[in-house]
Design a protein around this nucleic acid. Structure first.
Ligand code: SF4
Ligand code: SF4
Lengths: 147, 147
DNA sequence: TAAAATACGATTATTTTAATCGTATATTTA
DNA sequence: TAAATATACGATTAAAATAATCGTATTTTA
């Protein structure tokens, strides 16, 4: 199996929402309710995104989170990195041979690394803007969206 | 995270080995030893590959497994399908709305499905031949390979 | 007919992912 | 300046997915 984790899905949905409301900070609590994501989990995810400079945290009574950059500058690969996940099809990527016990006698790694770099390129070239363009093109009334 | 399972890796290594010895059937036991894969696990994996017409099982005292088709005709997507795994980046692929509880209010699925179809295409277009070409090009002495 | 091989359901162990808990800290505004 | 509203984050628990193992049956051929 090869799949995005829930954490990544949550992050994508959240960033999309923030992208639709770029002017005002939105609290983790509100995001959690609107997007039906467990608060503590989302909260921690937002903290990770903040540490990586993808969103900005605003403290205080009217605080919340907002995007730190333009949607077109937020690559999926950045998001995955920020969440400490990785998109490697195999373990032995980072040159850390130790990461896989069969590294030395493994004859499939090179072709797999090739495939992986192609997948990486796809993920890198997808940005938050791709999550927003449907809304743009259909001129959705953002204010009235449940989500 | 987005990664091939061990089962898939084992299958790829095994098919590569079978591809290097296309003339003679090789028993699950021998494959398990040569490739250092737990026997029962590999055995079941081979059965799945056999059911899907990727390898052919030969019973009896000189039996074993051999490839059912040319390497160029064995796509990675076939292998993944055979092993009952899938390469979907998200759950909601198959049009089974029920597969995800948030389907109805989810606004990220369309762009993700787009990304997914590109990844699918990469996986489909990679074949067992890609796992063998290094051996071909370097004129490896297959007979002397440990693996 | 015995040996060597595959077939396969069922169970257990391990690892990864997801969710929750508890407490500390920062900021704003009334 | 105090109370309310937020974020910060380590630690723990729960749930799910993956990997490994067990036990027994069936098939073929030397
Ligand atoms: S070395 Fe081979 S077996 Fe190990 S992670 Fe890489 S591809 Fe997989
Ligand atoms: S519907 Fe949305 S949340 Fe559900 S699996 Fe698809 S992309 Fe993910």
């Amino acid at each position: 199996m090869i799949r995005f984790s829930k954490k990544i899905e949550y992050a994508l949905g959240t960033l999309q929402f923030l992208g639709l409301h770029q002017n005002t900070p939105i609290s983790a609590r509100e995001l959690s309710i609107k997007l039906k994501i467990p608060y503590e989990f989302l909260s921690k995810t937002l903290q990770q995104l903040a540490r990586s400079g993808i969103v900005i945290a605003n403290y205080g009574i009217k605080g919340g989170y907002h995007l730190a950059k333009k949607p077109s500058e937020i690559h999926f690969s950045d998001i995955i990195d920020a969440l400490d996940e990785n998109a490697s099809v195999v373990d032995c990527v980072d040159g850390l041979e130790a990461s896989c016990e069969r590294y030395n006698y493994c004859n499939i790694k090179n072709p797999l690394l090739e495939l992986q770099s192609k997948i990486f390129e796809l993920i890198r070239s997808t940005t938050l803007e791709d999550l927003l363009k449907d809304f743009k093109s259909t001129k959705f009334d953002v204010a009235n969206l449940d989500c």
